[in-house]
Computed example of a mutant assay.
Amino acid sequence: MDIAQHVPTPPPAWVKNMARFGLTAKGIVYCLVGILAFMAAFELGGKSEQSSDKSGVFQFILEQNFGRVLLAIVAIGLLCYTVWRFLQAFKDTENKGDNPKGIGVRIRYAFSGFVYGALAFYAAKLVLGNGGGGNGDSRETVAKELLQQPFGQWLVGIVAVGTALAGLHQIYLALSDKYKKHVQSAGLKHEAEAMMIRAGKIGYIARGIVWLIIAYFFLRAALHANPNEAGGSGSAFAFLESSSYGSYMLGAVAIGLLFYGIFMFMRARYQVINVG
């Protein structure tokens, strides 16, 4: 990637600190998503499925004592995670190379950077008091914008397929144990490593399920040319809640997302961070 020549590389200590701070912020978000979704599943504290997505988590943080400060810290952490992902993509700090497989992995890093960059931007707007005008599902907005383009239904369908592949990849990571590379290079004791591996496996499966449901929503939006049928994680939680044994299904996925957040904390503490 020629763009890598124009991307400055921060000092190694900065890269490591950004990565660990970013992984910690991501862990906080997923732990809160899991907790709020679990509360929604069993009607605890008046929480609903739609208030359990990431934008709902930001609102929850904002409502706490010193909420604006806490959310600002989370926003900075997500921004750090974004920068780290872009460094992985454009500076190839993980040494994935320029072959098709390596390029594919680096594109995935860049996509992750864009996603969490958007989340950091939304959190920052809330901190500044400019984002309170409704939950406004961003995926509905994306679907609406795409449907207005030529071949819009096909574009939304491509997003659906891409989202489904991302969900399947999460489940593949869990079942193939490929995520263990984040753990086994840290030199942990057997008990800590086993705990981290279990948390990661459960978390990746739960995350994959949510992504697959979101892909289903995008597919419906494409087939019916209706952006209102697209939805995010809040809609996915509501879908699970409405299924057979819905509370238990949503509760299980919520626990899985909580485990994913814990896995991010462990990665922040123990993962070896490559700096190029």
Rank of each mutant, 00 (worst) to 15 (best):
M1S: 14
T9K: 13
K16D: 15
A19D: 01
G22H: 03
L23S: 02
I28R: 04
V29D: 14
V29S: 13
C31T: 05
V33E: 14
V33D: 11
I35W: 07
F38K: 02
M39V: 02
E43F: 10
E49V: 06
D53S: 03
K54A: 06
G56K: 08
F58D: 12
Q59F: 04
N65G: 11
N65R: 13
R68S: 07
V69A: 11
L70E: 09
L70G: 06
A72H: 03
V74N: 08
W84P: 08
R85V: 04
L87T: 00
K96S: 09
K96D: 13
K96V: 00
G104A: 13
G104R: 12
V105I: 15
R108W: 12
R108S: 09
S112L: 09
G113T: 11
G113S: 12
F114N: 04
A124C: 04
G129V: 12
G133H: 15
G134A: 07
G134H: 10
N135F: 07
D137T: 05
R139D: 15
V142T: 15
A143P: 14
L147Q: 09
Q149H: 09
P150C: 02
F151H: 05
G152W: 00
L155Y: 09
V156M: 11
G157E: 12
A160E: 14
G162F: 10
T163F: 12
A166H: 10
Y172G: 00
L175M: 08
K178M: 14
Y179I: 10
S185Y: 04
S185C: 00
A186K: 06
G187H: 06
K189Y: 07
K189Q: 13
E191C: 00
A192Y: 00
E193K: 05
E193Q: 10
I197D: 13
W211K: 00
W211I: 00
I214R: 03
Y216H: 14
Y216G: 15
F218T: 00
L219Y: 15
L219A: 13
A221Q: 08
N226A: 05
F237C: 03
L240Y: 11
L250T: 02
G251I: 01
L257E: 13
I262A: 01
F263H: 04
M266Q: 02
R269A: 09
Y270V: 01
I273G: 06
N274T: 06
V275F: 09
V275L: 05
